[in-house]
């Protein structure tokens, strides 16, 4: 019972981070039918930029409260990642808008490698640690230990997802995004500047990635130039699980994937008689990805392609 409750909590925390990253994949796919494989790296850059700012703030103003320092890091990381996402689309995808679909997929992977290496040159190969600036409270609820940070991550992530849902479903910009996702051509006939909508989609997704990057590095206490790779693949799996292109699907897929992964890691030792340990955690995301692709390629909430207008 204790393991179950604990792993559900851990899964919810991880899942709400995956969901934020998965939203970036799914929004871009919805509009361009492109998998932006560099999105995981945007998350990593977000963490790195935030940690750099946090380090600088601590050096210059050692008296500042921890929460303010972290907030400062996040507030710089978000616009930095937005700018990066905007640039990635301009450089790697826009020139290939009318090229065969394989071409932007290759530049996506290329962009991902470029960003990893650039980050390695700037921040080095070492793990960068996240200083203990955040409240460290711990509570035991129903046998599960819950930290302040976990509560904070889940609340912030759900707030952001709620805000994004409102943006997409209720605002003029969101309506134009959904219209563009259905038909770029007809959206243009309505006077929508599709290039602008595409840029804004990358900007919004990258902002979410920045927040997720800071959350991950705060949660694990470190960041690394390679961290975006696995996080990106898992978030992509989450987006596919929820139904790629579907915004609520990405939220649901992220949460589910986090929970599946945590439960899998919690019980894999028991299930295999101790043969496999919890370090096999990463296997579950890909097990889920393959299962979804085989049995329900459209994902949990994805629409059948025939439904498209």
């Amino acid at each position: 019972m204790d393991i179950l409750a604990q792993q559900l909590v851990n899964g919810l925390v991880l899942g709400s981070i995956y969901a934020l990253v998965a939203l970036g994949y799914t929004m871009v796919y919805g509009i361009l039918e492109l998998i932006n494989f560099a999105h995981g790296e945007v998350t990593m850059i977000g963490a790195m930029v935030a940690l750099t700012v946090i380090g600088a703030l601590l050096g210059v103003f050692p008296q500042l409260p921890g929460l303010v320092v972290v907030l400062g890091g996040v507030l710089v990381a978000i616009p930095a990642c937005m700018l990066l996402g905007f640039g990635i689309e301009k450089v790697a995808y826009r020139p290939l808008r009318h090229a065969p679909r394989l071409a932007p997929l290759i530049t996506a992977i290329g962009m991902s490698i470029v960003l990893q290496n650039a980050a390695m040159l700037v921040w080095g190969r070492q793990y960068v640690s996240f200083p203990p600036l955040l409240p460290q409270g711990r509570y035991v609820i129903l046998g599960a230990q819950i930290t302040d940070l976990q509560i904070f991550i889940v609340l912030l992530s759900f707030t952001i997802m709620g805000g994004l849902w409102l943006l997409v479903e209720r605002s003029r910009l969101g309506r134009a995004m959904r219209a563009t996702a259905q038909s770029r051509e007809v959206a243009q006939l309505m006077g929508v500047n599709v290039d602008r909508i595409v840029s804004l989609t990358f900007i919004v997704g990258s902002g979410l990635a920045a927040v997720a990057g800071v959350m991950v590095s705060a949660y694990y206490g470190l960041a690394h130039y390679y961290m975006g790779f696995m996080l990106g693949l898992k978030a992509f799996s989450a987006a596919v699980l929820g139904g790629i292109g579907n915004i609520v699907g990405a939220m649901l897929g992220g949460l589910l994937l986090g929970i599946i992964e945590a439960l899998g890691a919690g019980y894999i030792g028991d299930l295999t008689g101790g043969f496999l340990g919890s370090h096999y955690q990463d296997v579950f995301a890909f097990f889920v990805l393959i299962t979804v692709l085989v049995f329900r390629p459209s994902g949990l909430l994805g629409e059948r392609v025939a439904n498209r207008a």
């Binding site: 309506r175 038909s183 309505m190």
Partner: peptide, 16 residues
């Protein structure tokens, strides 16, 4: 016709 099938009728009109 080119209507946006997954938008509501009112949302289609708003897009106009």
């Amino acid at each position: 016709r080119g209507i946006f099938g997954r938008l509501t009728v009112a949302e289609n009109l708003a897009m106009g």
